[in-house]
């Protein structure tokens, strides 16, 4: 069973969300991926105003409309607009088809503005995904590092959180979130550098590692290679490829009355 935590409509050919979703599914089929999580719309913005993130979420909801048996959607929010983000969370997750939250580079995730979003999402059992990077040349102005994620995780020790990209520079990223048992790492969206999965397993345990691709910017293939190429037990590989993500999503599906 392979579930992909991290897919987008961008970088995929097609003029509409429906066309792009069909493309994603076609390639997922080729790679044996059963389910994918999709977030952010046709045209990205790193610091979206509410009308922008609403539109992007509408595009994802449209893309999901024929693929609820294969795909999940996460609501893209901007913590600079807390009131509007909470309303969007209600619209897309509580009252809509989405099951998670995507936070990107608009605001550092260590900021206090994240707290109410995390608390509301946790009440809904929504999966919370935060982009992170450690860039040696310096991050974007408000781009979170795994240390920001660690600060957030420390304030919400009972809420499961996902550290996007394992921080990119994974040897530092894994260390940064290691003490926080409520944080899992996303393997998506960085070069398939050998050793990442083995180190994550050694330092975090298999239950805290989740396969994702960052398709269409990345290929499913290059990112799956991090799991299929890793020198790890088969039991760990199964958890990483899908069982961990399934375990995180099941509670919200149960709340929504959705069975798999």
């Amino acid at each position: 069973m392979i579930w992909d935590l991290h897919c987008h409509l961008s970088g995929v050919s097609g003029r509409t969300p429906d066309e792009r979703m069909a493309q994603l599914i076609e390639f997922a089929n080729r790679m044996g991926i059963e389910r994918i999580c999709v977030y952010m719309g046709m045209h990205w913005s790193s610091d979206p105003k509410p009308e922008d993130f609403r539109q992007q979420n509408d595009e994802v909801i449209q893309a999901l409309s024929h693929w609820h048996h294969r795909a999940f959607g996460f609501a893209y929010l901007n913590p600079k607009y807390v009131k509007e983000s909470l309303a969007e969370l209600d619209r897309c997750v509580r009252d809509g088809p989405m099951v998670g939250v995507k936070l990107w580079t608009a605001h550092r995730c260590s900021a206090s503005e994240l707290d109410s979003i995390v608390e509301r999402a946790a009440d809904m059992k929504a999966v919370i995904f935060q982009h992170t990077w450690f860039k040696v040349e310096g991050n974007l102005g408000n781009e979170s590092t795994p240390l920001d994620m660690a600060a957030l995780a420390g304030r919400h020790p009972n809420v499961p959180l996902i550290c996007g990209h394992t921080g990119g520079d994974w040897e530092k990223g894994i260390r940064a979130i290691r003490p926080h048992k409520n944080v899992s790492v996303d393997l998506a969206g960085f070069d398939p550098t050998a050793g990442v999965t083995e180190m994550a397993l050694r330092e975090l345990g298999a239950e805290r590692i989740i396969y994702g691709s960052d398709a269409g910017g990345r290929s499913f293939a290059s990112q799956l290679g991090k799991v299929f190429g890793a020198d790890i037990p088969e039991s760990a590989r199964k958890l990483i490829l899908g069982e961990n993500l399934r375990r995180m999503i099941l509670p919200i599906l149960k709340l929504k009355g959705v069975s798999l």
Partner: peptide, 18 residues
Amino acid sequence: HAPLFYFESALLKLKESV
């Protein structure tokens, strides 16, 4: 680009494309 990259990443690219 092995062994710096996982060899399987390159191999799977041949499978992904039609």
